[in-house]
């Protein structure tokens, strides 16, 4: 070193943290909200989770010597209706976001409430279906069809329950006036998650119930 301007010695006046200084918080990267950025990362992990599940299902099913026709074991009509209910609830979530973007808190509460109602209905029908099946003796330890059925619909069902709870939390916050036309990113985050759960169900319904 040609010249050493640094002193190694500790000087409390220079080196210790100053007791009161402002906190500097910078923004960088793409112009999206941090929460939104994180929720997309989280959804990517969810995609991989369901990829693992669906991949396992495909491997197990193609490896099995025989596989029963789902319609012979499951109430496809009821679940088709249930699928429709879930898709409609996604539409309600879209409407609720549009409402708050215009600053219409009443409409937000209305559409969000409907989405919660429809989501809960979906969970209710699933629980009904489970009770019915278990009562018939169709438990997960019977054969691989039921093993995979419960694993796939069960994990999705848990996601729906989490989604409903999340929407309820947003609804309560909305009722307490937390959101406005300028500040409603949390509505959007919950909505993204809800759409994802909805999308996964369409996929699951297709491969578990229809084929």
């Amino acid at each position: 070193m040609s010249s050493s301007t640094h002193s190694i010695a500790y000087d409390p006046a220079v080196d210790a943290p100053k007791p009161h200084h402002p906190v500097y918080d910078y923004d960088s990267g793409p112009p999206v909200d941090r929460g939104k950025f994180a929720i997309w990362l989280f959804l990517a992990t969810e995609v991989m989770f369901f990829t693992g599940l669906i991949g396992s299902y495909v491997v197990i099913r193609t490896g099995a010597p025989t596989w029963p026709d789902p319609s012979s074991r499951l109430a496809v009509d009821l679940t088709a209706f249930n699928t429709f209910v879930l898709i409609v609830s996604s539409y309600f979530v879209v409407r609720s976001l549009q409402a708050i973007q215009k600053g219409n808190r009443g409409a937000l509460l209305k559409w969000l409430g409907l989405a919660i109602l429809f989501g809960s209905f979906f969970v209710g029908v699933q629980v009904y279906e489970y009770i019915h099946l278990v009562h018939e003796g169709s438990t997960p330890n019977v054969d691989l069809f039921w093993s995979t059925f419960y694993a796939m619909t069960g994990f999705h069902g848990m996601h729906v329950i989490v989604g409903v709870i999340w929407l309820i939390c947003v609804w309560i916050a909305a009722a307490r006036g937390k959101y406005s036309a300028e500040n409603h990113v949390r509505v959007e985050l919950a909505g993204l998650y809800w759409h994802f759960v909805d999308l996964v169900w369409v996929l699951l319904f297709t491969i578990v119930y229809l084929f």
Binding site: A44, T45, E46, F49, T51, G52, L53, S147
Partner: peptide, 16 residues
């Protein structure tokens, strides 16, 4: 982010 969820899915299946 991309690899761990697959193991999580697998270990849930093993748990089942």
């Amino acid at each position: 982010l991309f690899a761990l969820p697959v193991l999580t899915a697998g270990s849930f299946l093993q748990l089942a």
